[in-house]
Write a protein that binds this DNA or RNA. Structure first.
Lengths: 95, 95
DNA sequence: AATATTGTTAAGCGTTACTTAACAGCCATA
DNA sequence: TATGGCTGTTAAGTAACGCTTAACAATATT
């Protein structure tokens, strides 16, 4: 029992946080990153790093954990989709 | 107001989860990774990836989020220690 | 004493996030 | 119409990181 739905890529969510009229170029000036970097994030071609989450948090007034956590969940789901080797649970001694 | 203490590296925490008598070599056989990989994680010379967190979860009977979340918090703290560019908060229109 | 096993370091490979340069598409203005 | 400035995306190059196998010194085993 865990994540069952493909979680949205953080870039998709980020899109919704940008004001309608705001261009990518404008946003990158505020965030002080290159246009390319933001473009790739928005298109799901790059992930959100810790540093990026700090920038987003400072700019959008959220917690950094929101963005980084989203990325984490996405990474996890991706990893879950790949065949995992069968690992036998460690037998712990009862306390 | 946020993280103020240097969070422990996930590898340090992982150490406490390994049974006293268990060798790194043994653990890596269970986890099906190389000795080097686990060694580096335990010594804080590598992070815990999504795939690794799944392995640990399967083996130790925890949620993967525990390990990946720990890594996330560590990454965030590291990023916070570096000088962040001053970003002016986005002025949102009142609803 | 010789051999095996431990954990770590070295070296190489593949992936990814970042940058700047280059590009095609759109819009304004001369 | 052309021309120049803007848009967002792609191309190319660099640096960092996680992973592997090979090699090593130190310790344990036979």
């Amino acid at each position: 029992m865990s994540r069952m739905h493909n979680p949205a890529h953080p870039g998709e969510v980020l899109r919704e946080w940008l004001p309608e009229n705001m261009t990518v170029t404008q946003a990158t000036k505020e965030l002080q990153i290159s246009r390319v970097t933001l473009s790739k994030v928005l298109n799901g071609k790059a992930g959100i790093t810790a540093g990026m989450s700090l920038r987003l948090a400072a700019w959008l007034g959220t917690s950094p954990d929101v963005w980084l956590g989203m990325q984490t969940q996405w990474d996890l789901w991706q990893a879950e989709q790949q065949p995992t080797p069968k690992i036998r649970p460690l037998e712990r001694l009862a306390a």
